[in-house]
Each structure stands twice: as structure tokens, then as C-alpha cells.
Design a protein around this nucleic acid. Structure first.
Lengths: 197, 197
DNA sequence: TAAAACAACTAACGCGTGTTAGCAACACTT
DNA sequence: AAGTGTTGCTAACACGCGTTAGTTGTTTTA
């Protein structure tokens, strides 16, 4: 009867949540079964329920832990006395790093939140909407100060956030450039565009 | 015993495939059941099998019809005697229009292809990989001719394609700018960047 | 070392799934 | 109007799912 191995400060629940992120990313939330997860953890499916309440709880945990990190970051960035472009760049770099270093979690939170159920679902959607509005507000500020082109701010936000989710492809690719190169390339393109002038 | 209504040149299978796209987009492939689909079509679940072979067949049809449209387009664009930037812009505009006008299909093809099974799966992945390489080759050409900044071409492709998939958010949003405005904004930002200079 | 708390197990439940078989009603052709 | 293929129906199948109950084994505490 082999127990789930834990290290210091890592609960068995944390182990399960982490493995769940990997599995949900790989197969999708619906397609990943609790029996799959149990196998990944090295235990029988029923045993998981000594540590978690339900499959959906795993999704809650993942989605909200990611969402909270982004909300804290935008709090921080908004308060800094820097230009709008610098704020945008800081947020982008944060997004890129989160996507590079916490790939599974961020990816799952991004693509599988639809399977949350109320009240978590509407809660999550709200947080997401608010985050985007605050991001757009920064861009609108930049437009007002002539730092940023006269564009539709919500559209800009949408482009930025989705472009970053493309790091998924980078992660999966075999011959990948370094994370640093990736970051610099993304910032160059998103902030400065393709055209050479 | 109400039949599936068909208009001229639209087979009953086409009706089913179209409804499937809407449903798969809404709930995800795995979460959408054949009974859901039957209800959307206005028929019992078993009746669907007079027109289709399996649930997965619906996904094949959607994924490959979308993939083929993009492959034909890149054939066309590659052959034109225009600059690299113009080629990129043409492809981007095509992507944007496809995403705006065939939202459900394109979205499903983009997000649910994982649930294809071999040999369709590897086939689809191949086509996708090849498409991206050809897109990247256009960008690399532009870099060689100094039209485009010295950036990592695969990263640029990844940004472009994923940015466009963000049109999903536009589609869902309530107060949306017009499709034309969206298109112009996206091209402006992706080709020219955010910064005003 | 005994008791208490924890974490694993086996067995099974009810349910929803994709799909098939067999039959009835419709639509079109001659 | 008869015949033929098409398209719908009902019933049911085998299976995998998330989850619970009850029990056994292991670790921690006193």
C-alpha cells in the first residue's frame, strides 16, 4: 500500500493538483478521467477522494490560483510611476514568464475554465473581464499620452493575451529557441510590430 | 416524425455538421453529446446515424474542411508577385475573415483537433506544421529583403496565428466594433506594433 | 505500546455515453 | 397506386464515468 510521496511543505493534495494540471492540459478537462489521474499519482481512483472533494474542485484550484497571480501583478503594475508602454511591457513579460514557467496551470486555466460551474464560473468570468478592462485602460492611457497608436484598446488586449497563449506551440516544439529569446522576440513584435522602418 | 429541413444544395449531413460545429464550439467536443446534437437538429440521437458514421467523423469533416481552405489560400498567396509584407498581410486578412465569418468551424478546428484519432490526427498535425513552416518561410524571406525586422520567424507565426484566434473574444463580446474595424485594428497592431513613432 | 488519525484499498452504485438493431412512416419514381 | 429507397422512431447494448461506503493498513500522537 504505497502512499503518495510528499516532500516538505507539499501536501498530498498539492501533488494531485499538479498532476491534474498536466493531465488536463494533455487531454482536456472532460477527457481526462479520475482513473487517469489516479494512475498518474500512483494510487487507486477512490483514494483521491481522501484529499479532494471533486474533480471540479481541481479545476477551481487551478483556475483561481492563476487568476489571482495575474490580478496581484496588475495591482502592482498599475501603481508604478512609469509610462503606459512600460506598464504594458511589464505585464507582457509577466504573462510570458507565467506561461513559460507554469505552463500547465496557465494553459488549463485559459482553455478549460468553461467547465467550471456556477458560482465559480461567473466569478471567474468576472475576474477575467475586469482584468481585461484594466489592461485596456492602461493602453487607453497610453493612447491619450501619444505613446501608443490610436487603436481600439480592447482589440489590442485581445491580441496581446492570445498571442501569449501561443507559447503553447513553443513549449510543444522540439527545436525551440531559449525562453529569453522567446521573450525578447515576443516583446519586439507585439510592441514594435513586424515592419522594419 | 418531422424530417430535418433541407434547402437546395444542402444535404442533411451538412445540416448536422453545421449544428455540430456550433455545439462543439459551445461545450467542447467531449462535453457535447450526440443527444445534445440531436436536440439541436430536432431529431432523436439514433437518427443521426442515418447520415453520419460517428461523432468523430463530424470532427474530421470540420477540421479538414478548415485546414484545406487555409492550404489553398497559402498556395495562392505564395504564387503572387508581391512583397513579403503584403503576403503576410493577405494571409492575416484571410485568417481574420475566416474567423469572423466561419467562427464555429474555425474555432473548433483550432481547439478540438486533439480529439481526432489516428490516422487523422497525425495527418492534421502534419498539415498544420507544414502550413506554419510555409508561413514562416514567407517571413524569413521578408527579413532577408529587409522588409521585416530581424526576428525569429516561427515565433512571429505563432504570435500571428494565436492573436487571430482571439477573435473568439470579439465574437462573444456584447458591444463589439464592426468586423471592418476589427480587421484594420488587428493588421495595424500586428504589422505595425503598438508604439507610436 | 495503545489509541487516534490518516490514507490507502476493494466493491459497487447510478448515470450518461456512443452506437446498433429492427421497425414504421414518409417521399419519390414509374 | 405500387414499389423502393430514405429517414425517422423506440429500445437497448456495453462501457466508462465520477463518486460513495466500508474496510484494512500505515503513520503519528500520547
Amino acid at each position: 500500500m504505497a502512499r503518495i510521496k510528499t516532500e516538505k511543505n507539499i501536501s498530498r493534495k498539492d501533488v494531485i493538483v499538479t498532476k491534474a494540471a498536466i493531465l488536463f492540459r494533455e487531454k482536456g478537462f472532460k477527457a481526462a478521467s479520475m482513473r487517469d489521474l489516479a494512475e498518474a499519482v500512483g494510487v487507486e481512483a477512490a483514494s483521491l477522494y481522501n484529499h479532494i472533494k471533486s474533480k471540479t474542485e481541481l479545476l477551481h484550484e487551478l483556475c483561481f490560483s492563476v487568476a489571482n497571480r495575474f490580478l496581484h501583478k496588475i495591482d502592482e503594475v498599475e501603481a508604478e510611476p512609469i509610462t503606459a508602454i512600460e506598464k504594458v511591457e511589464k505585464l507582457l513579460r509577466f504573462h510570458i514568464n507565467e506561461m513559460v514557467n507554469h505552463y500547465e496551470e496557465v494553459y488549463v486555466s485559459d482553455r478549460e475554465w468553461k467547465h467550471l460551474s456556477d458560482p465559480y464560473l461567473s466569478n471567474f468570468q468576472n475576474q477575467r473581464r475586469i482584468y481585461r478592462k484594466r489592461f485596456a485602460a492602461i493602453i487607453e492611457n497610453g493612447i491619450r499620452h501619444n505613446e501608443i497608436k490610436k487603436i481600439d484598446a480592447p482589440t489590442a488586449v485581445l491580441i496581446m493575451l492570445h498571442a501569449i497563449s501561443g507559447i503553447e506551440s513553443w513549449h510543444r516544439s522540439t527545436q525551440k529557441i531559449s525562453a529569453e529569446e522567446l521573450e525578447e522576440n515576443m516583446i519586439t513584435i507585439l510592441v514594435g510590430g513586424l515592419v522594419n522602418r
